[in-house]
């Protein structure tokens, strides 16, 4: 059994328009993946592909009009979707932790950072407060905050972006989670600080045997910090597999175009790019969602493609999986 098993997860935004007609945005459509303990999985995709929404759906953090309309999320064998709110609350912040993009808005501005770390430990673990304090200092040390005893008295506004992100990571680690979900953890940070934070998180997964999901639009981060990659497009995972395998032999036309668009592979002025707009989630094309933008599309693409295995743990959802010319496709 994997640590996390997501099967056919579907999340829709259900609302009414100005004429009181029900409108449905199909934001996640049959998302399925597995994550083993101690592994790092990287989610990539364009804005609106459903990367963050997948994380929020797993953690039960959706707000109306977003709603899970199907599928299952098994964490350590327990179904998180069916789980009563109190049990889910006990799990979140304890066995499942999250680090988000903007650290400053995630910290309580009116509480010293040490007290915020103690608070989350007390809420889930209890025991003497002095023990929680000791743990807080240990975790601040572990994430590379200099002089923890002094810094634990600091207010959130006194911290730089990189320091605030370290505090959030320390907070996520307070209860020894089995799964850490990092949603664009370094997007607002400078590259030299990004390197520090990513090295730190990767080191912690190795040290504590924690599994991690990294959500990012930066393929460089996924290439160097995750074991597996999942490429999302229009609310589905179109290709997934071991990082080296997928980068070396991308199968799905969308993955190919994404990798060809990275600065390393991009040929300025060379060939047609996979242009066009992301599909309208209120009105998805029938069959393959990419077909309106895909240069390989044929009539068969109007029917839904199935997931095919094309290598060890490497899957692609395309009618022409394994049959497209090597290295070809949209640049």
């Amino acid at each position: 059994m994997s640590l996390l098993e997501v099967e056919n997860l579907r999340t829709h935004f259900i609302s009414r328009d100005i004429d009181n007609q029900i409108r449905v945005a199909k934001a996640l459509n049959d998302v399925s993946f597995r994550l083993e303990a101690g592994k790092v999985l990287g989610f990539v995709g364009e804005t609106g592909a459903g990367k963050s929404l997948t994380a929020q759906s797993i953690c039960g953090l959706l707000r109306p009009p977003a709603r899970i309309v199907g599928g299952s999320v098994l964490f350590d064998g327990q179904d998180l979707i069916e789980m009563p709110q109190e049990e889910l609350n006990a799990l979140r912040g304890d066995q499942i932790a999250m680090v988000v993009q903007n650290p400053r808005t995630s910290l309580d501005p009116l509480t010293r950072i040490g007290d915020q770390l103690v608070r989350i430990h007390q809420a889930h673990t209890g025991g003497p407060v002095t023990a929680s304090r000791g743990r807080a200092l240990d975790m601040m040390q572990a994430v590379g905050i200099p002089d923890p005893a002094n810094r634990s008295n600091a207010w959130p506004h006194e911290l730089s972006g990189g320091m605030a992100q370290r505090v959030l990571i320390a907070m996520a680690l307070m209860n020894n989670p089995k799964l850490l979900i990092a949603d664009e953890p370094t997007t607002g940070l400078d590259v030299t600080v990004q390197a520090q934070i990513l090295d730190l998180m990767k080191g912690l997964t190795e040290r504590f045997g924690m599994a991690m999901i990294i959500i990012t639009h930066d393929l460089g981060i996924v290439a160097h910090y995750s074991d597996e990659i999942a490429v999302m497009f229009a609310g589905t995972i179109v290709e997934s597999g071991p990082v080296r395998e997928v980068f070396a032999k991308p199968d799905h036309p969308y993955t190919r175009s994404l990798i060809a668009s990275t600065p390393e592979k991009l040929q300025i002025g060379g060939g047609a790019k996979l242009g066009g707009q992301p599909p309208d989630l209120y009105n998805l094309p029938s069959g393959c969602p990419l077909r309106t933008r895909c240069t390989f599309a044929e009539d068969v693409c109007a029917t839904p493609p199935t997931r095919k295995q094309i290598g060890g743990g490497h899957y692609s959802v395309c009618h022409f999986s394994g049959a497209l010319p090597e290295g070809g496709g949209p640049q």
């Binding site: 590259v191 030299t192 290439a223 080296r244 980068f247 990798i259 990275t262 390393e264």
Partner: peptide, 9 residues
Amino acid sequence: AHLPADPAA
């Protein structure tokens, strides 16, 4: 600190 989008690099 720049991460090339190539796991083999």
